[in-house]
């Protein structure tokens, strides 16, 4: 792609999210969301390939529908109450409609079907933008309105998302679909706690962005999109294979790694709010997710692929890709857990 066009698209992507962050009026927030969708569409369709075009079409249709529903919910609220500011979304019908539209936008469980298919059709860097940067603007809106939304709806969305995110990833062999289901499960964790402790939602979103960036950049570095290719990465770069397994376990939420921090704090908050059944369900749903991360680790580190590698030792040659972001995100993914007290002090 032409670098000038790419620069315009990337800066519009930034502009859309910033506009939604900065707005207090629903129309401006909607315009930010629309700019985001319109700016990422050419990025997704830049390789003129049937799968990329299909993914772009599906993404465009869902995002345009969700944005129109968000604006309709706020217009209904304005006709009922005369208020356009984001924090004053008080009409119950408008609230429910807004939450449904936002669940469609970020891919929460009953409205998640577009997410794996879209992510499957994209290349890894656009998939990284889709699963990190594109989540920020919707979360800025939901953090501001969450106090008015029906708690039952939020709990249902959160629990079904974690369950479906675990269940859907079980039989997949495509890594991008697995990462999409992992995204659905993590979104469920963020939504379940949003009414009790919004700062924990932000913490979970931050750690999720760090972890999923590390995962996508690792896959980009080793050029893998399938489990079978992942099984031969040990011959390409042994150290990257070792950290890949740890990054995946961190996404699954195992204790000495960063991914444990949001799960731990969210479960503690749910227990404090006297919701032991929901906390137990969430913890058990995390186990289903952990199964497919463990399966990836098993295929990658504990088995030797039956095919022989014919190439000449690729780990000797210098890579041409930039490895500094990968190193930074991997370090943050593996070692942020001791920072938990500092992060808690800073956020609460």
């Amino acid at each position: 792609m032409n670098p000038y066009v790419l620069m315009i698209l990337l800066s519009s992507l930034g502009l859309g999210t910033t506009l939604t962050f900065a707005s207090s009026h629903w129309l401006l927030a909607w315009m930010g969301l629309e700019i985001n969708t319109l700016a990422i569409t050419p990025l997704m369709a830049q390789h003129h390939h049937p799968r990329a075009v299909e993914a772009t079409t599906k993404y465009f249709l869902t995002q345009a529908t969700a944005a129109a529903m968000i604006l309709f919910a706020s217009t209904t609220n304005a006709w009922m109450t005369g208020e356009w500011s984001i924090t004053d979304l008080s009409d119950p019908l408008a609230n429910t409609m807004f939450m449904t539209a936002l669940a469609l936008k970020i891919g929460l469980a009953p409205m998640h079907f577009w997410m794996p298919e879209v992510l499957q059709g994209l290349d890894l860097l656009t998939g990284l933008i889709l699963s990190t940067w594109q989540k920020l603007a919707p979360f800025a809106l939901i953090i501001q309105t969450a106090q008015n939304i029906d708690p039952l709806l939020l709990t249902l969305l959160g629990v079904t998302s974690t369950l479906v995110g675990g269940w859907g990833g079980l039989n997949q062999t495509q890594l991008r679909k697995i990462l999409a289901y992992s995204s659905i499960a993590h979104m469920g964790w963020m939504i379940i706690v949003i009414q009790y402790a919004p700062q924990l939602t932000l913490l979970a979103l931050g750690t999720y962005i760090i972890m999923t960036s590390a995962a996508f950049l690792t896959l980009k570095m080793s050029l893998t999109t399938k489990v079978s290719t992942l099984a031969t990465t040990w011959s390409k770069s042994p150290i990257l294979t070792a950290t890949t397994a740890l990054v995946l376990l961190s996404l699954g939420g195992l204790p000495p790694l960063t991914g444990f921090m949001p799960k731990w704090l969210i479960l503690q908050e749910l227990t404090k709010q006297d919701l032991p059944i929901i906390a137990t369900t969430m913890a058990l749903a995390a186990l289903i997710s952990l199964y497919f991360y463990l399966r990836l680790c098993y295929a990658m580190t504990l088995t030797i692929s039956p095919n022989t590698t014919n190439s000449t030792t690729p780990w000797r040659t210098q890579t041409t890709q930039a490895s500094m972001p990968l190193a930074l995100f991997t370090m943050a993914t593996l070692g942020l857990l001791p920072m938990t007290p500092a992060i808690l002090t800073l956020t609460t």
Partner: peptide, 12 residues
């Protein structure tokens, strides 16, 4: 944008 995607889909 939707119409552009329609053309792209028709071509692919």
């Amino acid at each position: 944008t939707g119409l552009a995607l329609l053309v792209a889909t028709a071509r692919t």
